[in-house]
């Protein structure tokens, strides 16, 4: 089949191309099972080497190739042509400054990530037997969903609250904080809760639900944010959230 790509281009180095514009490319002999990323590579390799985008693993785990494809945030490597059809519009993800073509400045995103203490804290002495700390399978299951995050930014850059106010930490940072807040071994939940209770923390979330369908990892992002909100309201994460008690309507 033939596929037409309509791609948002921008190159600050070239006069005439230093304002965003659309460019179309037609590819022949495309298979429905081809990945969108592969087809972007064909455009770049066969037709126009100046087309610029990030990518690495091409199997949905590195999180490099988040793009807005036919109006939805997707990983280009995890999306097949048959799922988007023969006319494919590709833009950079929204809410972050565009550097060139589909490449955006990820620094504001990673700044938000770093601001929520996205690391494990446990200052207790290590077990005397020199082995692992114990954790029950049930306690481990509570935060399983949010350990899936690959920091691709699909969720954060689909969020109208983030588009409106870039100071909002955004869904991805909250997901990362959630992963630790609800880990029974971690001891810094209170600090993270305090950070996220600030005006640019979780309360900028208006439960629009864009983030959850945007997540290429299937994380229930809105639910994770809701659980953090609950933890803030109740002043503690411990013992209040049991996934079984929350209806799964997502």
């Amino acid at each position: 089949m033939d596929v037409t790509f309509k791609i948002r281009r921008y190159n600050p180095e070239i006069p005439g191309k230093d304002k965003p514009y659309w460019q179309e490319y037609v590819l022949k002999d495309v298979e429905p099972t081809n990945r969108v990323l592969e087809m972007l590579h064909r455009v770049k390799w066969e037709q126009d080497g100046t087309l610029s985008f990030r990518r690495s693993c091409s199997s949905g785990i590195c999180g490099s190739d988040a793009m807005r494809i036919n109006g939805r945030n997707r990983l280009a490597c995890k999306l097949l042509i048959r799922d988007v059809g023969a006319k494919i519009q590709v833009e950079p993800i929204l809410g972050l400054p565009v550097i060139k073509d589909l490449i955006v400045d990820m620094e504001p995103f990673f700044d938000h990530y770093r601001s929520v203490m996205p690391f494990y804290v446990n200052n207790d002495p290590l077990p005397a037997d020199g082995r692992e700390r114990l954790q029950t399978a049930d306690d481990r299951a509570i935060f399983d969903d949010t350990t899936n995050c690959i920091l691709c930014a699909c969720c954060t850059t689909s969020c109208p609250s983030f588009w409106a106010n870039g100071k909002y930490v955004g869904p991805a940072a909250i997901v990362q904080a959630h992963r630790f807040i609800f880990d029974s071994r971690d001891q810094a939940a209170k600090d993270r809760i305090d950070i996220l209770a600030e005006p640019d923390g979780v309360w900028r979330c208006r439960t629009v639900y864009n983030c959850t369908p945007a997540c290429p990892r299937g994380i229930s992002v809105t639910r994770a944010i809701g659980e953090v909100k609950l933890a803030i309201m109740r002043g503690s994460p411990k013992g209040i959230i049991n996934p079984k008690d929350i209806p799964t309507h997502e």
């Binding site: 690391f119 494990y120 446990n122 290590l126 020199g130 082995r131 692992e132 700390r133 114990l134 954790q135 029950t136 399978a137 481990r140 935060f143 399983d144 350990t147 992963r179 630790f180 880990d183 071994r185 971690d186």
Partner: peptide, 22 residues
């Protein structure tokens, strides 16, 4: 052995046995 235990101490969320071990 020590390296895996250290990863656990860094917070790595290993799956658990019924006894709570890795």
């Amino acid at each position: 052995i020590d390296a895996v235990v250290e990863l656990e101490h860094m917070g790595l969320p290993f799956d658990r046995t019924p006894e709570g071990r890795i």
